[in-house]
Design a protein around this nucleic acid. Structure first.
Length: 510
RNA sequence: GAUCUCGUAGCUCAGUCGGUAGAGCACUUGACUUUUAAUCAAGGAGUCAUGGGUUCGAGUCCCAUCGAGAUCACCA
């Protein structure tokens, strides 16, 4: 144990000796928040020059002590609650309750109270002679003793920051410390909550039903990714943590719900980097009797609402890496073929597989012999186009081979009715006119099985029960999935997914 | 998975050519009845990520391991 930790444990023991419970059980009734007092305290100066305090004259606050400045028989502290910080002013005679021999001020407050401890105070708001709104404490209660020193960040009058707690490893492993001492990171998570709340309320207004579907699945369908595998003892069977919930949500459309949505944790047993975490959050929703054109309109409306809800001035924009992204619709709609033509000059519609291979070779795009035309197109898109799609852009009409759950295009042979939304060069949503032809769906699954047989680890598994559901009949349906973490990154200006997850995956300590 | 960078006090960091481990904040003791990065005085605090090697001598050089970050690869 470090010296400072030992000192705190001794302080804990001494508090108990003095009859102060460091961890009391009783409710402490909080009646005011720090930020509210600081923002709204009012006083007036009367004609005779005396001050008249107008509000917050009986307040009770609770929080952590984040700074302490002794001044003889008085003491200033900064108290931090969930709303922010406020200065406290304590005087010996009041804290001691007028009793000469009381240990409360000299022993308890000045010696045994440490930075990071939780306290409750009662008193009245006032302005110090330097003009800072503060609370004059008349009653003081210990609420919880902290046994480890917090890496408290200091800030001077000009806003310069000292000793910022910045080590990413320590911040992610001890998010509780990060959140306590780094208020700017708190804001990211508040925005995340607001983003989800805005989406949920938009979908509720559309009349969709929020549902829950299994995380433990016997067949990991709906996407192409390596799953986490687990085992159920009673059933003695292998189960997978879901890589997607798409096939379950569609079963609910089959069952007669016209619109369903789920905010769902997904699990993919793949690499980690600044845009991938093994578990991440998706929003998926499916609406009967709609197509992907309708879904593009809805996406524009929803994201504009989100942008305005998160922007401090209610604007439809977000700033990322110096770029101003505008989420007000309509977004640019570009077919896959148009996009490639625009950024490479290639006409992929008429090009042969050999033409595309030659192009990739010339442009040093890595390919292998097993790739068909569709896969080559996808590679070229990824290398040459994707990074250019900064403002929200719908990329539409993909080759059928890459989209086993998507309905074939109503007029363009070889393509499917699919779009992906790109923002800042990254995919943030993926949507289809859902494939509801059960025979076509079976054929597509079988193609995937052939890919798997050829060694494609990410080919989609065949789900007999899902096919049975489609055979009973699914109405025409539009569906979409959003990467919530990546949206959060965009709206909070964060380059790393770890900054928008409370507890990003880390290697075990030690 | 590959490459690069990093790991020193609770936090942020310095540490020269290989020669007794440093600073600020935090902490301890004392002073101070409106301070605010409070101030002033004194003091304590370290398995230099871990293990090995080279050397008379390693925080420093070499190797391995662990952890983190970045870039790349992979990845709906």
């Amino acid at each position: 144990m470090t010296e400072q930790e030992l000192i705190r444990r001794e302080a804990l023991a001494k508090l108990r000796e003095l009859g102060v419970d460091p961890y009391p059980a009783a409710t402490f009734e909080v009646t005011a928040m720090a930020a509210d007092i600081v923002a709204n305290y009012q006083e007036e100066i009367l004609e005779d020059g005396t001050k008249n305090r107008l509000n917050f004259q009986e307040v009770a606050l609770a929080g952590r002590v984040m700074a302490s400045r002794e001044a003889g028989k008085a003491l200033f502290m900064n108290l931090q609650d969930s709303s922010g910080r406020i200065q406290l002013y304590l005087r010996k005679e009041e804290i001691n309750g007028g009793k000469e021999d009381s240990p409360m001020f000299d022993a308890v407050v000045k010696k045994l109270l440490d930075l990071g401890d939780f306290i409750g105070v009662k008193g009245f708001a006032f302005k110090t002679k330097t003009g800072e709104v503060s609370v004059h404490v008349q009653e003081f209660t210990f609420l919880s003793k902290s046994l480890r020193p917090l890496p408290i960040v200091k800030r001077d009058a000009d806003g310069n920051i000292f000793d910022a707690f910045t080590d990413p490893e320590a911040r992610y492993r001890m998010r509780y410390v990060d959140l306590t001492v780094n208020p700017s990171f708190r804001e990211i998570f508040i925005k995340r909550s607001k983003l989800i709340k805005t989406m949920r309320s938009y979908l509720d207004d559309l009349g969709l039903l929020e549902v829950e579907t299994p995380v433990l699945q016997p067949i990991h369908g709906g996407a192409a990714a390596r799953p986490f595998v687990t085992h159920h003892n009673t059933l003695d069977t292998t189960l997978y943590l879901r890589i997607a919930n798409e096939l379950y949500l569609k079963r609910l459309i089959v069952g007669g719900f016209d619109g369903v949505y789920e905010f769902a944790k997904m699990f993919r047993n793949e690499g980690m980097d600044r845009t991938h975490n093994p578990e991440f959050t998706a929003l998926e929703f499916y609406v009967a009797y709609k197509d992907y054109h309708w879904m593009m309109d809805v996406t524009e409306q929803m994201l504009e609402k989100v942008a305005r809800a998160l922007h401090p001035d209610g604007a439809s924009t977000a700033e990322f890496d110096g770029q101003v992204l505008n989420f007000a619709g309509p977004y640019r709609r570009l077919t896959m073929y148009e996009a490639i033509s625009e950024y490479t000059g290639l006409d992929v519609e008429t090009a042969t597989e050999a033409d595309l291979r030659a192009y990739c070779k010339r442009e040093h795009i890595e390919i292998d012999a097993t790739m068909g035309k569709a896969k080559l197109i996808d590679e070229i898109f990824g290398e040459k186009v994707e990074a250019n799609l900064i403002q929200p852009t719908f990329l539409i009409d993909y080759p059928v081979e890459m989209s086993p759950l998507t309905k074939v295009h109503r007029s363009k042979p070889g393509l499917v009715e699919r779009f992906e939304l790109f923002v800042n060069g990254k995919e943030v949503a993926n949507a289809y006119s859902e494939l509801n032809d059960p025979l076509d769906q079976r054929a597509r699954f079988e193609e995937q099985l052939q890919l798997a047989a050829r060694g494609d680890e990410e080919a989609m598994a065949l789900d007999e029960d899902f096919l049975r559901a489609l055979e009973y009949g699914m109405p025409p349906t539009a569906g979409i999935g959003f990467g919530i973490d990546r949206l959060c990154m965009l709206f909070t200006g964060q380059a790393s997914i770890q900054e928008v997850l409370f507890f990003p995956q880390m290697r075990p300590e030690k």
